[in-house]
Design a protein around this nucleic acid. Structure first.
Lengths: 224, 224
DNA sequence: TAAAATTTTTAGGTTAATCTAAATAAATAA
DNA sequence: TTATTTATTTAGATTAACCTAAAAATTTTA
């Protein structure tokens, strides 16, 4: 079943995705332990899988030196991410799910294998540029248009911008933002940086004035 | 991952579905070989799985005597069928697939596990009663409303009806019906039964007059 | 109803993905 | 730069789902 050129097992796909996401921030080779943590497995299991993925030329792997994805590994990972994000848009836009409810379901849907399905879904959704969390959706050729985003934590008093992404996707965090009115598209203006604890006062959509912790501010991304 | 009350593995689900479909016509206990054929496995593998399903109280199994589904086995199977058919409606109604293209994709989608997802999909689709092939969609409590359908092969000259189902789901067959204009909703009138080879002449939607083989006629289902 | 054919089960293996425990390599600290 | 700690890999098992070949049960046929 999982033998054709573009077909990788459910599990292989999850490793590829994990490696991709880990190398997004890192920009360095990814370590065995990092992968183990992300995939909820043990280091020994990861080593086994790395050998397998290396045999398939999906990763560059040298013992003890971590891994990077090859061209075809990146392609495979990006395709899974495309599917994940399109399904998330579907769940929110068409089925009325909230942005904090869609991750686990998309995690299953992303492994459905049909190019035609995903391209038609893409069209049905109007070829969205971003998922419900603001993350960019790769197009059908694998190209990702990244926006220049800034963390609220890095902004100065007086600066303003539009909330366009988050760097923390947990349900608790997303529910909090929802409650605070800090959702995608909200326009914010930084009123004051509190020196004592690094918390930040800002106004949201001209009216609500709020103070948020530095920890929250680090995980909200804005277009200036 | 597959441990909670309603969770069965991908493979277990496929066996349950196979047993369900085999006992639809049979109405008798289903044999090991029948299951092996339907699931593309060998009899020995089936025996292994039957023991497992029996341990889980999903089937009634006595060595050498075939199997029937238990109440909870039926529940599980019907739920999978519900998901399969709802996804087929989605693929045809929303994504523009043809009725002969959706089976394999739905075969994958049917294993996505989220009650909320499937109920919302159901609502999004307008709670359809039947899938693109006319097969009834179980409601969220597992109830299936069967229509009284008659095979064209069993009709008499002069009788009329509306095509409402098929008993053969292969792509070749469905494409043929498409070409002949014998799709769901078409109104037919039997003009003549050809004694020589059992083929049948009929009119479709008042105009087209066609002759179809007995083999084709056996697999088209009609409401009188 | 005994022999032959068929069906089903058992026995024993394989593969993918996982694990624990032990061994080895690399990084850090004294 | 040696010793200690940490990270990674290897060795050896386990589990689910499958297989082939042989044995046992059932069914069919003569």
């Amino acid at each position: 079943m999982f033998n054709s050129l573009h077909m990788h097992s459910f599990t292989e796909e999850n490793y590829l995705k994990a490696i991709y996401h880990l190398s997004e921030d890192n920009s360095m080779a990814v370590s065995t332990n990092q992968i183990a943590e992300m995939t909820n497995t043990k280091a020994a299991s990861v080593t086994d899988m790395l050998k397998k993925l290396a045999d398939k030329k999906l990763i560059n792997y040298i013992k003890y030196q971590g891994v990077t994805l090859t061209e075809s590994g990146i392609k495979a990972a990006v395709n899974i991410i495309r599917k994940h994000r399109l399904w998330e848009v579907f769940l929110v836009e068409k089925l009325g799910f909230k942005w904090d409810e869609v991750h686990d379901i998309a995690e299953e849907l992303e492994h459905i294998n049909s190019e035609m399905l995903i391209n038609r879904l893409d069209d049905f959704l109007g070829n969205p540029a971003a998922d419900p969390h603001g993350d960019p959706i790769p197009d059908r050729t694998g190209v990702i248009k990244h926006k220049k985003l800034v963390r609220i934590a890095d902004m100065q008093a007086g600066e303003s911008g539009t909330i366009s992404g988050v760097s923390e996707h947990s349900s608790v965090f997303l529910k909090l933002l929802e409650k605070l009115g800090l959702t995608l598209g909200a326009k914010i203006i930084i009123s004051e940086l509190i020196e004592f604890d690094g918390s930040i006062m800002l106004s949201i959509d001209q009216h609500a004035e709020r103070t948020i912790s530095r920890e929250v501010a680090k995980n909200i991304l804005v277009i200036l």
